[in-house]
């Protein structure tokens, strides 16, 4: 491996950016494709799939065999609201391998006693999230029901293109949220990325069940390509607003 390739891989990892090192298994020839360049690469499809799975492995394309060394940043979750459902989500997220942080400025909720084994920040989201560098390997779920706390976090998550943005609340609550975001200039396409009502529809009732449904939805967003129908809807929305 050329030291320049190794340096580039390390620089991408340090910056929390994805990349794939491609090694031709027949002759050992190597090249590095940065996450931002995947779409325009000749191997775009296999590289995209590799980045989604986050797994290294061998692929065969047009009779040639390549080993892909896949490097993606560790996935982080930010949960806004130190509420009962967040308490239930924390141990589930840890088992599933997510690095989870709970943020809530209300010190009565954000206590170490309620959140023993999870990073807890008793701060306003707009004060701490900018320093935490949200990106597409970050998921964010809002659990407070309080627009004062949830909205600033949602706005930052949408702007940062987080892979998952979810918000607890009824359809009515969400309709009002959509109006506020529209007033702030967010596009239909951006707003449509918010999962609300939050969680996969498994009929969840208790906080623990809600946590399971949210975690399942987070994994779905991380691992599966957007459904074609969703893409088409997004395309139609762009067309309609143009």
């Amino acid at each position: 491996m050329d030291i320049a390739l190794l340096s580039a891989m390390n620089a991408e990892r340090a910056a929390r950016r994805a990349c794939v090192l491609i090694t031709d298994t027949a002759n050992g020839a190597q090249r590095l494709v940065k996450g931002a360049d995947v779409a325009s690469d000749a191997l775009a499809d296999v590289l995209d799939a590799a980045l989604r799975s986050g797994k290294s492995g061998t692929v065969d394309v047009d009779g040639k065999s390549y080993f892909l060394t896949v490097q993606v940043p560790p996935v982080r979750l930010f949960v806004i609201g130190a509420v009962h459902a967040s308490q239930a989500l924390a141990p589930l997220a840890r088992v599933a391998g997510f690095d989870m942080t709970v943020i809530d400025p209300r010190t009565a909720f954000a206590t170490p006693e309620r959140f023993a084994d999870v990073t807890l920040l008793a701060e306003w989201p707009q004060d701490v999230l900018p320093g935490l560098k949200l990106d597409r390997y970050t998921g964010l779920a809002c659990f407070t029901h309080d627009p004062k706390i949830d909205d600033p976090a949602l706005e930052l998550a949408l702007a940062a293109d987080c892979f998952y943005v979810g918000a607890l609340g009824s359809r009515k609550t969400h309709a009002r949220r959509v109006e506020r975001l529209q007033a702030k200039g967010f596009t239909e396409e951006q707003i449509a990325r918010i999962r609300a009502p939050i969680g996969l529809d498994i009929g969840a009732v208790s906080p623990a069940e809600i946590a399971v449904s949210v975690l399942a939805e987070i994994i779905l967003s991380l691992r599966k390509k957007p459904l074609r129908a969703e893409k088409e809807r997004a395309g139609a929305a762009i067309g309609a607003s143009a």
């Binding site: 190794l6 390390n10 340090a14 080993f67 940043p73 996935v75």
Partner: peptide, 28 residues
Amino acid sequence: MLATDEDILAKAEEWRKAGKGVAIATVT
């Protein structure tokens, strides 16, 4: 886990830049 947080490739770069002969082994 999606990624290891071990910074072993950073160490390989550091060793090489310090003038050492270095090899990387990868499970394929």
